[in-house]
Design a protein around this nucleic acid. Structure first.
Lengths: 111, 111
DNA sequence: TTCGAAGCCTAGTAATACAAGGCATGGAAG
DNA sequence: CTTCCATGCCTTGTATTACTAGGCTTCGAA
């Protein structure tokens, strides 16, 4: 469950890949996460639509050599900027969690 | 928005503090997160109830010197074990995100 | 021809953090 | 004495969100 971080993940995968269609995004995420995130289509497609709706992605229909129709997504300028921001938020977030998990100081930080 | 990680945070705060009542848990989390997580009561109390229901916390009513009634929570054995597991899951999770955000390798990892 | 993989989609569901309220007490300020 | 804020507990409702479970098509292999 990656509640709240899915958008960032999709943006990051697309930023790294340059462009990709839905199915490929799933595999890209799976590969780059070391197999940790194996997302079902019912998760990824709505996310792609949502992000395109929000103007962070753009898409074009293409036909692969195999003859299959694919919808290829890539980041917009806005999407790239959004990713930068999401990264920063993520850093703050994970640092804060780190403080909670790591800190063994029961009261104020002693000298 | 800490969707999915709230339980771990509460458990961690209580583990560090030993025991605390609801209001104190809020401040403990705030302090240890460096001010990043300032949770409203509507978030923390249902979480405490949920965790007690699940057997991860136990509580006792006490009366403070001021005369105010407080419900003091602490971890059960099960809760302590659960926290250990949540930590591990968090590590996996954040490592996976790290792989997605950091990795600049467009294809297979080269030699 | 039958089945699985590639490839797209949607409707419904469960979980969850949070907003917004309510209630009570103690102490300080007026 | 009253009024207000901080302490301290609680619940109901709501929006978001990832996911389940379906459905549709085409390609290629068995």
């Amino acid at each position: 469950m990656l509640k709240g971080h899915l958008d960032m993940i999709v943006l990051a995968a697309l930023a790294a890949a340059g462009s990709a269609h839905g199915y490929a995004v799933i595999e890209e995420i799976k590969r780059r996460s070391g197999g940790a995130f194996d997302l079902p289509e019912g998760t990824i497609y709505p996310a792609l639509h949502r992000l395109e709706q929000a103007g962070l992605l753009k898409s074009t229909w293409t036909t692969a050599d195999s003859g299959r129709r694919r919808r290829v997504y890539s980041l917009t300028r806005t999407g790239t900027r959004a990713l930068v921001e999401r990264r920063a938020v993520w850093k703050q977030f994970s640092d804060a969690i780190g403080g909670l998990l790591g800190g063994n100081r029961p009261r104020e930080t002693p000298a």
